[in-house]
Amino acid sequence: MSSNGTMVKLSGVRKIYDTGKVKVEALRGIDLSVRRGEFMTLVGPSGSGKSTLMNILGCLDVPSDGTYEFDGQRVDRLPLSQLAEIRNRSIGFVFQNFNLLPYSTALENVELPLVFRGLGAKERRKRASELLEKIGLGDRMEHKATELSGGQMQRVAIARALANNPPLLLADEPTGNLDSASGREIVDLFEELWKAGHTIMIITHDPNLPMRTERTIHMRDGRLENGAAG
C-alpha cells in the first residue's frame, strides 16, 4: 500500500493499436490519479477510449507508452504471469454482458477467481457461498448462469469480482443490459461496497449515475477532459 493513499497513478499513458495497415491512437497521453476508497464514474462518447483505459487500469492490457503505478508498484512492464496475479488478487471486474461461464452454476462462477488463486475446494465453497448469501442469491447458488435473470447474473458477477476481496473494482457499463429497477439495485450494491472500503470505478452512459459518485471523469478522443489529477 502506498503511503499517500494513491491506488492508481497513470502518467502520460498512450495506447496505439497497430493493425498493420492503420495505427489507431486510442489513448493520447492520460494522466490520472485515483485515491484509495474513491467512488468514481468514467463517461464519454463511444470510441473515446473509455474501455481501453479500463483495460489498462485492470492490467488486461499494457500501455504503449507512459507509466502505470498500481498500489505503489510499476506494472506497465510486468510479465504476463505477474499481471495475471494482480488481476486475481487486487482487481475485480464487472462487465456489461456479465461474462459468466454460462454452463457453470452461480457458485462455480464465484469460485473461479479462488481456483486461480489456488485455494482448496472447501475454502472456495465456503467463501463463494458466503458472498452469494451476502448479495441475496443464497437460494440460487446451484442454478446455472443461463437460468438466472439479468439482474441476478450481474449480482453473481459482482460476487465473483469480490471473491478475492480486491481493493479495486472496475465496472464497464454494469447497468447497460439491465432494466432500470435491476440497474438501481446494482448501483445500490456498488455504493454499499464503496462504503465498505472498496475503490470503485464505473464506466457508464447512464446520466444519473455520476450524481451518486464522488468524482466523474469525462473522456473524449483518447484524452481526459477534467478531474484527471484527482
Binding site: 485492470g58 488486461l60 504471469s81 495475471a84 488481476r87 488478487r89 488463486r117 465473483r160
Partner: peptide
Amino acid sequence: GIKMALGARPQ
C-alpha cells in the same frame, strides 16, 4: 478471456 480477467496465468 474471462478466465484471464479473473487471474488465470497463461501457463
